[in-house]
Design a protein around this nucleic acid. Structure first.
Length: 265
DNA sequence: CGAGATGTTCGGCT
DNA sequence: AAGCCGAACATCTC
């Protein structure tokens, strides 16, 4: 389930392992999860290391350990972090287990689109420090967004929202939520937006991120009940504003739902 | 049983 | 040549 706020929620699940030592590591190093081939290094280095802290940015998490070990976790489509008892026996999809005295930290991912990467060094890795500006940061300006739209004029706005360089952390449901709030049809091209529509999109993007982080990221609660979110899953979903049945199409390679009446095409 | 699922990457085409 | 699009990845659920 991992988009911005869900990733932040999952990251915090391992917080009880902070300042505690990893006694033993069990990793399915041959799986796609470890496609960078760093599984062996990770297993060897993490044994005896202490988990020092973690952060989440966009859809990526970074776990910092002693012995100069950094571990990046991307949850893909079906990844999750869990806490299990110290004597946990990993199942088929539990690709990484860090055994501690008090509990086990587990990474599970049935579809294996997730990814675990490793960095050894005193400083954090470049794949972390070079992430684009977060949507809720000061650098994420409207001008930057409009410049992106100029460069990608023939791209559908829905596809643009899924671009992780411009909209880091936004996934399929967040993109549909943002477009619904900004009253823009998903197939509109980036070059077609009026300044007013760009401004609305910019603002709603930040608003959806902000509220999602205040609700979903805190206790995995669903977003507020009047959100589009709740309608877009069901085949018979209707627009929360006017009750019209939602449209469905594939845009930007993903299932997209919108209201024909209130989202301007 | 087939279709689709909250993601990314690659290769081909324009 | 940049940039867009569809396919592929692997498994589960409806």
């Amino acid at each position: 389930m991992p988009e911005l706020a869900e990733v932040e929620f999952q990251r915090k699940r391992w917080d009880c392992g902070i300042r505690r030592k990893v006694l033993r590591v069990d990793a399915h190093t041959e799986k796609r999860i470890f496609r960078d081939g760093e599984g062996a290094v990770l297993t060897e280095r993490l044994s005896g290391a202490q988990l020092l802290g973690s952060e989440a940015r966009a859809k990526l998490m970074l776990f910092r350990f002693s012995k100069a070990v950094w571990m990046g976790v991307h949850l893909g489509m079906s990844g999750e972090l869990r806490i299990e008892p110290p004597d946990f026996s990993p199942g088929r999809h539990d690709h990484l287990v860090l055994f501690q005295k008090e509990q086990s930290l587990v990474f599970r991912d049935p579809r294996m689109f997730g990814r675990i990467r490793v960095h050894i060094g005193e400083e954090p890795p470049s794949w972390w420090t070079e992430l684009p500006p977060a949507i809720l940061s000061e650098e994420w300006t409207m001008e930057r967004m409009r410049e992106f739209f100029r460069r990608h004029g023939r791209l559908a706005i829905k596809a643009a929202l899924l671009n992780q360089t411009m909209f880091p952390g936004v996934g399929n449901w967040m993109a549909d939520e943002i477009l619904w709030r900004a009253r823009l049809a998903p197939a509109r091209l980036c070059s077609e937006l009026t300044p007013k529509q760009s401004a609305a999109l910019w603002q709603e993007t930040r608003e959806v991120c902000r509220i999602a982080l205040e609700t979903v990221a805190v206790d995995y609660a669903d977003p507020p009940s009047d959100w589009f979110f709740h309608q877009r899953w069901s085949r018979d979903g209707v627009c929360p504003r006017d009750g019209l049945p939602l449209e469905t199409a594939t845009i930007g390679g993903r299932t997209t739902r919108w209201c024909r009446r209130c989202q301007k095409s």
